[in-house]
Amino acid sequence: MTTCSRRNFVSGVGALILTTGTIVSLKAQGESEKQEKPKRYAMVHDESVCIGCTACMEACRETNQVPEGVSRLEIIRSEPIGEFPNQEYEFFRQSCQHCTNAPCVAVCPTGASYIDPTTGIVDVNRDLCVGCQYCVAVCPYRVRFIHPVHKTADKCNFCRDTNLAKGKQPACVEACPTKALTFGDMNDSNSTVARKVRENPVYRTKVQLGTEPNLYHIPFGKGEHR
Rank of each mutant, 00 (worst) to 15 (best):
D188E: 13
C50I: 13
I17S: 04
N190D: 15
T152W: 11
C129F: 11
G221T: 01
T54L: 13
C96H: 03
R198N: 15
T162E: 08
T192Y: 03
K151H: 12
T110A: 04
A59N: 07
F84A: 08
T2K: 11
A137G: 13
V173E: 02
D116R: 03
K27C: 14
C60Q: 01
S48G: 07
D116Y: 03
C108H: 08
R61H: 02
L26M: 09
L181H: 03
E83V: 09
I218N: 08
V49P: 09
P117Y: 07
S189C: 06
H98D: 08
P170C: 04
S95A: 10
F220Q: 08
T152M: 09
G167N: 09
P140E: 05
T162C: 06
T182Y: 08
D185L: 06
E68Q: 05
F91I: 06
I75Q: 02
V70Q: 09
H217Y: 15
K27G: 15
E79L: 15
A137E: 15
T205W: 07
M43P: 12
V138Y: 00
A55V: 04
S11P: 00
K222P: 06
D154R: 03
E224Q: 14
N190E: 14
T2A: 13
Y41R: 11
V207D: 13
L215C: 02
N157C: 02
S71I: 02
E47H: 11
R77T: 12
A102Y: 01
Q87G: 09
V10R: 06
T3W: 06
V136A: 06
K222E: 09
T100H: 01
C132L: 14
K151E: 14
T192W: 02
I218V: 15
S11K: 12
E31T: 07
P85S: 09
H217C: 05
F92R: 12
P117N: 03
Y41N: 14
R7Y: 01
R226A: 11
I218Y: 15
K206S: 02
R7G: 01
Y114P: 15
Q133N: 13
E47F: 04
N163L: 10
Q65A: 05
T152L: 07
N125D: 15
E36P: 12
A171F: 00
A42E: 00
G21L: 02
P80Q: 03
V24R: 00
C50M: 11
R6D: 11
R6S: 14
R195K: 06
N64Y: 00
N163H: 05
C139Q: 07
A28D: 06
A55R: 08
C129Q: 02
P170K: 03
D188I: 11
Y203V: 15
D127M: 15
T20H: 08
L26N: 02
V122F: 05
E79F: 07
I121H: 05
V13R: 05
T2N: 11
